[in-house]
Write a protein that binds this DNA or RNA. Structure first.
Lengths: 339, 339
DNA sequence: CTGAATTGCGAAAACGATTGCGCATCACAA
DNA sequence: TTGTGATGCGCAATCGTTTTCGCAATTCAG
């Protein structure tokens, strides 16, 4: 069905090796004459030859494919990053195999295994959890890897991170500046580097203002919408409810909105809201959302650049650690309690 | 570095063939004794053997990979669909290669070529354009294909579609029912089946109400946010501006919102808005958005099911055409002009 | 005890490409 | 005529699996 080198070889009368060399641009290196070169190229065109990438990959150990391992591609932040990565890698001649982990470490391990057995040339991963055993093994395997968005302690790898701590502190300090003293935080998956740094930012912001944090106001356990909904319901029913909620992720925010509007409350009059992750629609929400914007475009581009560099240097490159700053986009979802 | 069948063979003393058979579950079929089977399995475990999928694919002509060709994965609708597809295929043992076409047909052609040279076992595609030459060729190639969301005339293929026409008609008729007579439509990429059916719905809705459509109110040319912005700017500056805008896609809607709020207008008091594509945040927009919801969960699941069936039947299956109904979620972005 | 049937496994040929090595052929100088 | 380089290309191994055939060894019936 599909046309192979052999077909071209038999049609032209040359050997498979010669055809291969011509088609790979090794013409003058192997001193193939113009005449045969043109002839082979012509037939290749006619037959619409496409090299079988499997065979090629088997031989060369290069697949021109990379894996992208992310928690959930339907999350706008990840979707945007994926997009940037896909385009960047495609321009460099690579295709993208996308894997969702659903924040499940077992799934993540499986996916990595699978990618490796597929022989990908590199992996960009947003790992889940703090336990990094399988990631360390991956790094040791000498296959180029970039950790994106999330990281681990004591790890030597290409890292593209966002300063979650500072971003979080800015967000919470903004609330504090506006007179809020009971600020709830709905966290995402605990033991994920992003989450934990965001929580730390929240706590340290309070300390900087000499305000004790109420442990009851630190709630939540994962990045799903339902988590935001449930925890908000809980918070709103507290005897002494918070005046503001700080959401650590866009999906959580959606759940928070579900709960708030179900109770017919309004933002920011009844409750203030700040969110990590700035979605496209944030400016146009009922109450334009004050949110921490992550530079996903840059993150994706840098991750691509690092990975490509690593692939080219075949492991000889010293690893880079790049940390980007998020910015707080102030809109109207926070009430000023000072006046 | 990586462990192969040969390694296991030499460690156990058996031949490569026997090892292969055991590890592929062909143990009793080929009458391999319990003892050797267990021994081989044990060593395979110890060495953490993972079959090289390239080699396997080369031999079996199956890669356990499928391609997903979509316009833009950062678009929420496509992102959701991708997610569903990814999960479904992964459960069936397939990985997903994601390709963005950016609504560019040349890119689409390239991507398909690439996927084929990678030997994917199937393709799910949301094609761009009305010219289907390369798609027809793809279908003839006997590789299982599902066309998702978009289609072509006179084509015999697995189709999972949404009734864009009816969805669009419902949306526009809702506006008409509310007394709107000057309704603008901002279209997406012309000559795309989804877009053209939406426009047709718009026109027919007018005819059903015996209202002539003003050609000046049919604007737009692609699915990008900028398109929504520019066209809205134009519409708002018309001598006789529309009382409502009907957006044919979520990204366009975003641009529309950009323009409307830049001009400090309010929805629905100054201008009504209805959108095709119901994003997660639609209920929480400044004016909760009345929108046509596409059943992306179903679409993804059905596409997966059809593709798997097609793969299993190896082309013997008669093609299915499945059309799903969108629903109009009525919220508050439309003003009633009747009273 | 012999021949047939069964059991258990190995050799080797694919799959389609890349690549190190080396073999012809030809021109030209000696 | 012969030796020497250059020129132009083919042979065959290799990547890691799967799979067709077939062969030895064992078992079993007669």
């Amino acid at each position: 069905m599909t046309v192979t080198l052999k077909d071209i070889a038999s049609r032209t009368g040359f050997s498979v090796s010669t055809v291969s060399r011509v088609l790979n641009g090794g013409a003058e290196m192997y001193r193939i004459s113009q005449k045969t070169r043109l002839q082979i190229e012509k037939v290749a065109q006619e037959l619409k030859y496409r090299p079988n990438q499997l065979a090629r990959g088997l031989r060369t150990k290069k697949t021109q494919a990379i894996g992208l391992v992310i928690p959930d591609i339907s999350n706008p932040f990840f979707a945007h990053v994926s997009r940037v990565v896909q385009v960047g890698m495609y321009e460099a001649g690579y295709i993208l195999i996308v894997c969702n982990t659903d924040e499940n470490q077992d799934t993540e391990i499986e996916q990595i295994q699978l990618l490796r057995s597929k022989g990908v040339d590199g992996i960009i991963i947003m790992p889940v959890g703090l336990e990094s055993h399988h990631i360390k093994e991956l790094l040791n395997s000498k296959i180029p890897v970039v950790l994106l968005d999330r990281s681990f302690k004591d790890i030597s790898a290409n890292l593209v991170l966002v300063d979650n701590y500072t971003g979080s502190r800015k967000a919470v300090e903004y609330l504090l500046k506006n007179g809020h003293r009971r600020i709830a935080i709905i966290q995402g998956l605990t033991n994920t580097s992003t989450n934990d740094m965001r929580v730390k930012g929240y706590i340290d912001a309070h300390q900087a203002y000499h305000i004790e944090v109420d442990e009851n106001l630190i709630v939540g356990k994962d990045y799903r919408r339902e988590n935001g909904y449930i925890e908000t319901k809980y918070l709103l029913n507290l005897n002494n409810p918070p005046t503001a909620i700080y959401s650590t992720s866009d999906m959580i925010t959606l759940g928070i909105l579900d709960a708030i509007f179900e109770d017919k409350l309004s933002i920011p009059d009844d409750i203030s809201l700040v969110s990590f992750d700035d979605v496209d629609y944030a400016p146009y929400l009922i109450s334009p959302l004050t949110a921490v914007h992550q530079p996903w475009q840059l993150m994706g581009e840098i991750a691509v650049k690092l990975l490509l560099k690593d692939i080219k240097s075949s492991g000889q490159m010293e690893k880079s650690r790049i940390e980007l700053k998020p910015v707080l986009n102030i809109r109207k979802s926070v009430k000023n309690l000072n006046t």
